[in-house]
Amino acid sequence: MNAKRSDHLATGLIYTFVAIVVLILFGLIGYILVSGVPHLSWHFLTTPSKAFAAGGGIRDQLFNSLYLLILTLIISFPIALGAGIYLAEYAPDNWVTSVMRTAIEVLSSLPSVVVGLFGYLLFVIQFQMGFSILAGAIALTFFNLPLLTRNIETSLSAVPNLQREAGIALGLSSWKTTTGIILPAAVPGILTGVILSAGRVFGEAAALIYTAGQSAPVLNYGNWNAFDPNSFLNPLRPAETLAVHIWKVNAEGIVPDIDAVSNGTAAVLIIVILIFNISARMLGNRLYNKLTSSK
């Protein structure tokens, strides 16, 4: 049986490819963790970084990364959701839509540094935001929008038409059908998009160097007044993230423990992303079950 043999062959091939990929991924993550985890300590996580002496930590960078992620999602998620709904549910199949789609894809291929400079000249200088988390979040929105929009659109389109028809048949408006039936069913797919784009936020450096800046001024974590320049909540203060910190330490760092700081930070980044992914997934599953009453 020829078909059977090629079936076996193909299966074997696919398993081999997967094995290779798994090997690479494990090697990579293992490499980062093995070289980084030994440098981790409570002290490392809770002290501010140092300019030239050994023993600096990453307290502010860690917080900045998380804060930046939240701000970016607040800005980009609603827009992407609206756009995704438009593309999946309302968009007519004509050249305008097709141009829109192409434009979104082009947006995602812009090199970070170009977006960074655009953000710098427009937001930091022109709109006088200064080097700030907000400017950084807006710049990151440029990367996130295409990914998120695309993802939301695909997840919405993947929901069977049957569900739409059922909604309409029940007399619901198409908006109600979309938000009440289609959207909940698409939650897991949308979540993947959010997680992927969150990863991009954590990992981005080039665009942030020119927008959120590369210095981490001393923060006061007891100051809840978001207007105060010292406050950790102020969206208008410059903020160096973990990824930028790694870049900076390796490019121009003169601390004697560059390797420790750089590898340690990388390990922290991986662990943070892991925690974020797992908790987002758990939350998403719960949300999915609740919204679709599948349990």
Binding site: V18, L25, A266, L269, I273
Partner: peptide, 15 residues
């Protein structure tokens, strides 16, 4: 695999 792949996206270019 999905978790691992999503993890990879977050590794900064510098690394």
């Amino acid at each position: 695999l999905q978790v691992i792949i999503e993890l990879l996206v977050g590794i900064p270019s510098v690394i």
